[in-house]
């Protein structure tokens, strides 16, 4: 738990565009597939400043999700270093990565990934359960987060009782309720129709702006990608700037 709280809090609260959120050096990720090694990611150098909104594009199987996994501390790279908040994610133990995910990283998925048996508020609360927030505090903050995404009146609805756009908004509330530094989204609008897509994108952009988030988003949609400050392209595991 020796995370450098001071520096990260500073970058989050003061819009200091120069400070670096992620620094990747010589990062590779290999998968064993049918006895062969597949290099899913091969990044020589990549720096992402705090507060940036980044869109990642590329062909299917190019390595977009793999990069997001590395950034989100879901998995360790095969080699190289990923510096995040003064720590090298490549060298941390699973439990330490879990703590970083719990405190600093918000995730949004293409399939929303809500717990089907929990209602909207309870789904949001799952993100706080690991952060030592007491029961009353959890409830209050979950309702606030739901209100922030415009779903105050749907708190007790099950995911199956919500539209796709509403489900993704619950997922956004769940990702943001813990006030993370980074919001990672893997094709957040991939499963949504056009109207809902705009609704969700507007919400993400507004949250990014209001909360000084670093927003890194994989998308197939060029209209969505154009809203980003920076566009990266990944093919065959290699990252290139696309602006």
């Amino acid at each position: 738990m020796s995370l450098n709280q001071n520096s990260t809090v500073a970058t989050n609260s003061i819009p200091e565009r120069e400070s670096v959120m992620y620094q990747l050096t010589s990062v590779t990720k290999n998968y064993a597939h049918k006895g062969k090694t597949v290099r899913a990611l091969d990044v020589a150098e990549l720096s992402i400043p705090a507060g940036q909104m980044v869109a990642i594009q590329g062909p299917t199987g190019g390595g977009k999700s793999t990069l997001l996994q590395m950034l989100g501390a879901l998995d360790r790279p095969t080699s190289g270093s990923i510096t995040f908040g003064g720590k090298d994610l490549a060298t941390l133990r699973s439990a330490q990565l879990g703590t970083i995910r719990a405190e600093k990283i918000g995730f949004i998925f293409q399939n929303f990934n809500l717990i089907p048996t929990l209602n909207a508020a309870q789904n949001v609360e799952t993100a706080l359960a690991v952060n030592g927030v007491d029961k009353a505090g959890r409830k209050e903050r979950a309702l606030e987060a739901l209100a922030a995404v415009g779903l105050a009146d749907r708190a007790d609805h099950l995911p199956s009782e919500l539209s796709g756009g509403q489900q993704q908004r619950v997922a956004i509330a769940r990702a943001l309720v813990k006030n993370p530094q980074v919001l990672l989204a893997d094709e957040p609008t991939g499963n949504l129709d056009e109207a809902m897509r705009d609704e969700v994108m507007e919400l993400l952009e507004r949250q990014w702006r209001e909360k000084n988030l670093t927003l890194i988003m994989v998308t197939h949609d060029s209209a969505v990608a154009r809203r980003a400050q920076r566009r990266l392209r990944i093919a065959h595991g290699k990252v290139t700037e696309a602006k």
């Binding site: 699973s94 879990g98 995910r101 719990a102 998925f109 990934n113 717990i115 799952t126 993100a127 690991v130």
Partner: peptide, 10 residues
């Protein structure tokens, strides 16, 4: 997997 991704421990 999702719960782990949002920080739940094993």
């Amino acid at each position: 997997g999702t719960l782990k991704a949002i920080g739940w421990s094993n």
